[in-house]
Amino acid sequence: MHRRILAGDRLAAAFLVGCVLFNYPLLSLFDRHAAIAGIPLIYGYVFFAWAMVIALIAWAIERHVR
C-alpha cells in the first residue's frame, strides 16, 4: 500500500516537473538562435525534456509492479 502511495506521489511530481519544463519561463531560456551539434537549441531542449518526463512517468508507474 505504501508503494502505491509512493507511485502516486511520483506521478504527481512528474506532472508538476513537466508543467514547469514545458512552460514559460524555463522555455524562454532556450528561446534563442543557437544550435548544439546542428540541432536548434529550443528543438533539442523540448524533445529532451519530453523524453525525460516520459521516462519519469515510466519509472514511477511501472517500477513497483516488478
Binding site: G8, F15, G18, F22, I42, V46, I57
Partner: peptide, 21 residues
C-alpha cells in the same frame, strides 16, 4: 510557427502523468 505545433502533444503527456488518478 516552428516548434508551435508541439504543445498539443505535450499536454496529453502531462495528463497521462495524472492518468493514474
Amino acid at each position: 510557427s516552428g516548434i508551435g505545433f508541439l504543445p498539443v502533444y505535450l499536454g496529453p503527456t502531462l495528463v497521462m502523468a495524472l492518468g493514474w488518478f
